[in-house]
Design a protein around this nucleic acid. Structure first.
Length: 682
RNA sequence: GCGGACGUGGUGAAAUGGUAGACACACGGGACUUAAAAUCCCGAGGCAGCAAUGCCGUGCGGGUUCAAGUCCCGCCGUCCGCACCA
């Protein structure tokens, strides 16, 4: 027998059992000690952990252990983001109930996480699909409803025709569903929304206080909120040309200084004025219909021609009653931004200049560079079709001539605020945000039920707190598309809580991002009988270090920031008057791996790393498919994913080399914020 | 189109404007061993040279500075986010 070697799997198992038996990582609120709340984004229980989890949780674990060693009382919990579509898909494909599938996955993944030797307080484990968790979410929803922070609205929604559900704007990527990849359609529908837009400015301003967040994430959120300051400005319509009842057109502009460059108005196909005009104009009605049919995909938007239709309505320039410009319906104007109407200034905008040329409208240069030689050149170029709208001085703009753009902005605002139209100021300063309210209704079974009842007599009635939770029926069917709650024979039929007459439950469930918007607060008191426990929150919040993937830079982090504010408003966020739940954020890099595919086949047939043999070194490396002996192609190094099959199972690594080895490599190979290239050799 | 990040050996990567390549992997040589693995020691940016040493080197081209991987200007390339947002 050779000398005894360190047997990693054996020793690791031993100590993990000891830690478990002695509850060494259990944490209690202890105000005599300084606290440190270390949190990694909780996983979706897909069934197996992957290398991204290993990296994420190792980083958090190292920090938690270090802080513990430094004398901090460390909260390091773990739970499950357990609602969501994959469970329902599994139900449809494999005839297994979402609940069963989810809890089996949780059990399997919990075992894997334990094999990693993480110092987690498992006594605080929560699963968002547990009624003991979502009952509190329903309570908070009702509290938010009472405060007007959750409301019902008829809205155009992003409809995913594959998953048969509504998606939030944030979940539409390049015009496709973030999960299904299907082209998203626009549909009108009653649905629930959170009033995140009420916090636009606060969410934006407070980014400045998040000095322990990556600059990149703050910038992404800033852009997403998209603040723009401008002027809301009403143009009088020429009464001889306008439909009855329409006397003016309100537009939003960030560049009122360019008002003397106006050569047309453009309104959205859904704009009330467009609809009124279309009522007596068949060709216009057809044009509007065509615009509505146009998809929202990236490809369609980029290739779609900028088209307009002259309504023959004329708008009167606010500074010159003799100057009128034509009003077009245009396919590139969005009804839900600003007022759904703009004035076009071809001198300063590529899109406007193309539009003007196409329809033979004037092009007036109104902004020019400050220095003389550049000026005449720029003006000449504008006439040729090259817009100029940089900082400069005003030209061709009457009383604005010679002013800087900034001064001209203020001058126009000042004059038009004084000017009256129909008794009201012609214009007012206005701030617009790109951020829209968060549509949270999902036509799905495996999500938190929205605790309201629709009654023919009483309207929308909330479920009384004592009747919560509204739980999901276990006996739903998953054999056809659509929402199983809608076709359940009995679940939806309940008496109205107010008048007791027959009524129907809301069958929409909540977006799973709601579940993950407050779990960090629940971890501080997972057994509290109210959604949160004030004393626990006051001690533990905020999260001192949050760690997760950059892919959540907008959705999850912005929603959580909003939700904690809403929780404050409804008395669930403790006494600290804390608005920001995450004091510090770290976004770790991805785990990436080479891809392999069968040679000479397109589209590629991917091979698992374990299915290929590599020979040679450097540029001379070659790959062979082990099973067939045929050559394989070594492809790009990309994020590990099922679709590209470039996966390495953490279990194999842990079983062979031990968890310490896997953890060590993850931390030592590349800086934590950067991608780590997983190689067996490494 | 807008916003951002990045570009340094064979590889992962270090460098408050002050000796570029720390540390490590891989590699080469050596020790130990019958042999290997493991371990330990030594070497190493490139070119030239037996060597001492010299020259060249942080994507490319300029600039500021006593001094630039680092700061400024202009390119090239890669990656990420947003995008008919008025």
């Amino acid at each position: 027998m050779a000398t005894e070697r360190y047997n990693a799997p054996d020793r690791e198992k031993h100590w993990q059992t000891v830690w478990d038996a002695k509850n060494v990582f259990r944490t209690a609120t202890d105000t005599s000690k300084p606290k440190c709340y270390v949190l990694e984004m909780f996983p979706y229980p897909s069934g197996r952990i992957h290398m991204g989890h290993v990296r994420n949780y190792t980083m958090g674990d190292v920090l938690a252990r270090a802080k513990r060693a430094q004398g901090f009382n460390v909260l390091h919990p773990m739970g499950w983001d357990a609602f969501g579509m994959p469970a329902e898909n599994a139900a449809m494909e494999r005839k297994v109930h979402p609940k069963k599938w989810t809890y089996e996955n949780i059990a399997a993944m919990k075992g894997q996480l334990k094999s990693m030797g993480l110092s987690l307080d498992w006594s605080r484990e929560v699963a968002t699909c547990d009624p003991a968790y979502y009952v509190h979410q329903q309570r908070m929803f009702l509290d938010m409803f009472a405060k007007g922070l959750a409301y019902r609205r008829k809205a155009k929604v992003n409809w995913d025709p594959v998953d048969n559900t509504v998606l939030a704007n944030e979940q539409v990527i390049d015009g496709r569903g973030w999960r299904s990849g299907a082209l998203v359609e626009q549909r009108e529908r009653e649905q629930w929304a959170f009033k995140i837009s009420a916090y636009s400015d606060d969410l934006l301003e407070a980014l400045g206080t998040l000095d322990k967040w990556p600059e990149k994430v703050r910038l992404m959120q800033e852009n997403w909120i998209g603040k723009s300051e401008g002027l809301q400005l009403r143009w009088k319509l020429d009464p001889t040309t306008a439909p009855a009842g329409h006397t003016e057109l309100e537009i939003f502009t960030t560049r009122p200084d360019t008002l003397f460059g106006a050569s047309f108005m453009a309104i959205a196909p859904d704009h009330p004025l467009a609809k009124a005009a279309a009522a007596s104009n068949k060709a216009l009605a057809d044009f509007c219909d065509e615009c509505r049919r146009m998809g929202t995909s990236l490809a369609e938007i980029e290739t779609a021609e900028k088209k307009g239709f002259n309504t023959s309505i004329k708008a009167v320039h606010p500074f010159d009653p003799t100057w009128t410009v034509p009003v077009y319906v245009a396919n590139f104007i969005l009804m839900d931004y600003g007022t759904g109407a703009i004035f076009g200034c071809p001198g300063g905008d590529q899109r406007d200049i193309e539009f003007a040329k196409k329809y033979g409208l004037p092009v007036i240069p109104v902004v020019a560079p400050k220095d003389e030689p550049a000026r005449s050149k720029a003006i000449a170029k504008v006439h040729e079709g090259v817009p100029f709208l940089d900082d400069g001085v005003m030209v061709n703009s009457r009383f604005l001539d010679g002013m800087t753009t900034k001064a001209a902005f203020d001058e126009v605002a000042k004059r038009l605020e004084r000017e009256k139209l129909a008794g009201k100021p012609v214009a007012e300063r206005k701030i617009n945000y790109r951020l829209r309210d968060w549509g949270l209704s999902r036509q799905r079974y495996w999500g938190c039920p929205i605790p309201v009842v629709h009654c023919a007599a009483c309207g929308t009635v909330t479920v009384p707190t004592m009747d919560l939770p509204v739980t999901l029926p276990d006996d739903a069917t998953f054999d056809q598309p659509g929402n199983p709650l809608d076709r359940h024979p009995t679940w939806r039929h309940v008496p109205c809580p107010k008048c007791a007459k027959p009524a129907t439950r809301e069958t929409d469930t909540m977006d799973t991002f709601v579940d993950s918007s407050w779990y960090f607060a629940r971890f501080t008191a997972p057994d509290a009988t109210s959604p949160t426990d004030t004393a626990a929150l006051d001690y533990w919040m905020p999260v001192d270090q949050y760690i997760g993937g950059i892919e959540h830079a907008i959705l999850h982090l912005l929603y959580s920031r909003f939700f904690y504010r809403a929780m404050g408003e409804t008395g669930h966020a403790g006494r600290q008057n804390l608005r920001e739940p995450f004091a510090a954020l770290f976004t770790q890099g991805m785990v990436v791996h080479e891809t392999y595919s069968r040679a000479g086949i397109d589209p590629p047939q991917w091979l698992l790393p374990s299915e290929v043999a590599i020979a040679g070194e450097g540029d001379a490396r070659t790959a062979t498919e082990i099973a067939t002996g045929k050559p394989a192609v070594i492809g790009d190094i990309v994020k590990m994913s099922k679709s590209k099959k470039n996966l390495v199972d953490p279990d194999d690594i842990i079983a062979h080399w031990g968890a310490d080895c896997a953890r060590w490599f993850m931390l030592s190979d590349s800086p934590p914020e950067r991608d780590v290239i997983w190689t067996e050799a490494g």
